[in-house]
């Protein structure tokens, strides 16, 4: 396995870590089994790509709009669940499916090239890793600090015991919508960064991203556990970095890229089986 493959895996892993964090927030802090990442990720990418290629926006402004658009999608999922009592997963699937058409409308065509645009990333993989690491730290540190405040404590209580939270006067709806906006926004951020990283946006970009993120989260939790807040927050990051390296190793050993999704699913099943065997629930 070459150093280039490791660095490339690291670069991809840092983007995947953001998606894994986006998946972790509803799953672990809100007890909200959510699939919106599958739709929010390409939506963020589509908005970012169009803003850069058609409107000539600055890459950071384009990312910002991508984050807001995907965050609104997250809020949409929570509203469908809260107002119409639709199962959380079904709400996510419905919006993600609708999102495909929305993305095509936004883009106007199935793919957009950004090779002519100046993005955040350049040809130096080291510089790209530095930029992505900084972005990840700028997300994780404020999140860790927020979760240690009164508001963060109340936010976490929503997912751990809804009846208790309600009795303490904590608004379940507001906290769920806030969490889903942040989760959707993080997926959109990952999509926007990926679009700029590969200088290309394809409407089918998000297919299977949820399972990659979920696999990352589970690998991280299997290693670090989730007994403390710090471990819970570090789990998606460590998991994503390891997961990308595992994929790199598999590819370097001759696995066909078309078999990657089967490989990913197998990893998730193995992690679940190991967690059940060792008594650590998924």
């Amino acid at each position: 396995m070459s150093i280039d493959l490791i660095l490339n895996g690291l670069q991809q892993g840092l983007v995947l870590a953001i998606i894994a964090c986006a998946i972790m927030i509803p799953f672990r802090f809100l007890d909200f089994a959510d699939l919106t990442a599958e739709g929010a990720y390409p939506l963020g990418g589509a908005i970012c790509a169009v803003c850069m290629s058609c409107c000539g926006l600055h890459p950071i402004a384009a990312i910002f709009l991508g984050v807001v658009g995907a965050g609104v999608m997250g809020v949409g999922t929570s509203l469908i669940h809260l107002k119409f009592n639709v199962n959380t997963m079904l709400a996510g699937i419905i919006l993600s499916t609708m999102g495909y058409s929305v993305n095509l409308r936004i883009m106007g065509r199935p793919n957009i090239s950004l090779f002519e645009c100046n993005g955040l990333f350049g040809p130096s993989i080291h510089a790209n890793i530095l930029v992505l690491s900084s972005i990840l730290l700028l997300l994780i540190i404020p999140l860790a600090l927020f979760l240690r405040t009164d508001f963060g404590l109340r936010f976490r209580a929503v997912g751990l015991n809804q009846n208790f939270a309600k009795k303490q006067g904590i608004s379940l709806d507001k906290n769920t919508m806030l969490g889903m906006f942040v989760a959707g926004g993080l997926s959109g951020l990952a999509g926007s960064l990926m679009v700029q990283l590969q200088s290309y946006m394809d409407v089918g970009m998000g297919v299977g991203i949820l399972i990659h993120g979920l696999a990352s989260l589970m690998i991280g939790e299997a290693i670090l556990g989730k007994s403390t807040l710090d471990r819970q927050l570090a789990a998606p990051v460590l998991g994503a970095l390891l997961y990308q390296q595992i994929q790199g190793i598999a590819l370097s050993l001759g696995l066909a890229p078309s078999d990657l999704k089967f490989f990913t699913g197998s990893i998730v099943l193995i992690v679940i089986a190991l967690q059940r065997k060792t008594g650590r629930n998924a």
């Binding site: 927020f146 240690r148 405040t149 009164d150 109340r154 209580a157 303490q168």
Partner: peptide
């Protein structure tokens, strides 16, 4: 800290 029913702040619950 959750049960003390004070108005929440953006300060650490510690």
């Amino acid at each position: 800290a959750l049960s003390c029913n004070q108005k929440p702040h953006f300060s650490f619950y510690k």
